[in-house]
Design a protein around this nucleic acid. Structure first.
Lengths: 185, 185
DNA sequence: GTCTATAATAGGATAGAC
DNA sequence: GTCTATCCTATTATAGAC
């Protein structure tokens, strides 16, 4: 039996972080190999190619994120306000690393893939539509359906804009204030 | 005297559009050459390199955008609401091409350059801080200074988020509705 | 101002030994 | 499961003729 030194899971996790930081196009297999401490070619033992890796990363993120949202929305112990609070704190932890943020991987990917023939687009779209759906569900407990839907879209937009500014100016206050605003509606 | 067939201005304009669509990393000198109808190497007659071109593009955008904002803010014939309306209609025309948007070049660039050693960052930051400053000035006519500043940041965030969704889902309604909201406050 | 040719390198990917 | 060696293509950039 062969010795497992590096697991696919480990490669996925570390690659995710690097691509999140540097962006898809600017992260080469070589960069990944150095970060992972493996030979460049060994990467292909785990993945068909760079695009294949990215698909797995995005799927992983979508799944994890959907889980988080689902648990909050379906938690019977939380009222509307509690759900929004919980969501905000989860997001803050998820996107903020010691006051610094890499922005939203999905948004970054979106901007790097729109208009091209990448397979990434459907999964990125799914991410955002899922986000809006769950948020609409929460706001629906307190507001009429159409109003809730509008609020969800607005909240997502503010959130993404805040992530952009947080990253660009390396100032987590944009993110924190946006989340406060969104949770208090 | 030599014959001028292609001007630097023309290269700049056309390059801007292509990079806006495809993104900086995914646009090669070769791509540009094809679009411009020139030899690949001829590009270097006008620009020191790709990064040099990008700097000029970003400077151009910053200048043009600052002009637009300045003219609106300093127009004595417009009241607060009129300024916001004017701004919204300018933005809609600037960012929306026949119902499709390429998103915000500055935001796209930001996400492609943050965390790297690119010279782009200062100019992208300047763009966003200028935007916030002018918007704060407009809201200040109607709201207290600190409230106006907060509203400006929020408006920018909604706007950028809306551009993201507009591009991702190829649906200009996100942009239109965000602009309506921002202008009516 | 524009082109052809070419250098130089980086990046994605495969073959095959261990 | 991991490595070295290698291939191939794309891409940035330069040299020099017209």
């Amino acid at each position: 039996m062969p010795t497992i030194k590096t697991s696919k899971e480990e490669i996925l996790q570390k690659s995710l972080l690097l691509i999140w930081q540097k962006g898809y196009h600017d992260t080469s297999i070589g960069d990944l190999a150095i970060t992972l401490g493996i030979a460049k070619s060994h990467f292909y033992y785990y993945f068909k190619g760079k695009e294949d890796l990215m698909m797995e990363i995005l799927s992983y993120m979508l799944e994890k994120f959907t889980q988080i949202l689902q648990r909050i929305v379906e938690n019977p112990e939380l009222d509307t306000s509690g759900k929004l609070q919980k969501l905000a704190s989860k997001m803050a932890r998820f996107y903020d690393f010691n006051g610094y943020s890499n922005g939203c991987l999905m948004a970054n990917t979106a901007l790097e893939s729109v208009g091209k023939d990448y397979a990434f687009l459907p999964i990125v779209r799914k991410f955002f539509s899922t986000f809006i759906e769950y948020l609409t569900q929460i706001y629906s407990e307190k507001y009429p359906a159409d109003e809730a839907a509008r609020m969800a879209v607005q909240a997502l937009q503010e959130f993404e804009g805040a992530l952009l500014l947080t990253r660009l100016f390396a100032d987590e206050n944009y993110l924190k204030q946006a989340l406060e605003r969104i949770a208090s509606r």
